[in-house]
């Protein structure tokens, strides 16, 4: 954005969806409780953005550049390890 538009808005530099930071759309944010988290990976499978990473060390964590705050992860977690909170900006 901001650059000169191409004819018909055609994008030649493809694979650029990471340039759109969907995290700016967020109202709620998921807060992960590492102690409750069983590292089962269910939330990661359901996240429509595919931005939840599970590590043994920290458990589930979302890439907040792209998390839209949809709350699907919190809804799907069987162990109540995710809470949605209003994000203060």
């Amino acid at each position: 954005m901001g650059e000169k538009v191409t004819i018909g808005g055609i994008i030649y530099d493809v694979g650029n969806s990471t340039a759109t930071k969907t995290g700016t759309w967020r109202v709620f944010k998921p807060v992960f409780d590492s102690d409750k988290c069983k590292r089962c990976g269910i939330c990661a499978k359901f996240c429509p953005e595919g931005i939840i990473e599970i590590t043994q060390e920290k458990g589930a964590q979302a890439n907040m550049d792209y998390c839209k705050g949809c709350g699907i992860c919190a809804e799907e977690c069987p162990f109540d390890a995710i809470k949605m909170e209003v994000e203060k900006k």
Binding site: M1, V5, G8, G9, I10, I11, V14
Partner: peptide
Amino acid sequence: DKPMTMGPFAYPKPYAAM
């Protein structure tokens, strides 16, 4: 070999520009 995206989504500013 030269993939491109046609008819993409555009935010207000690029939309207006186009």
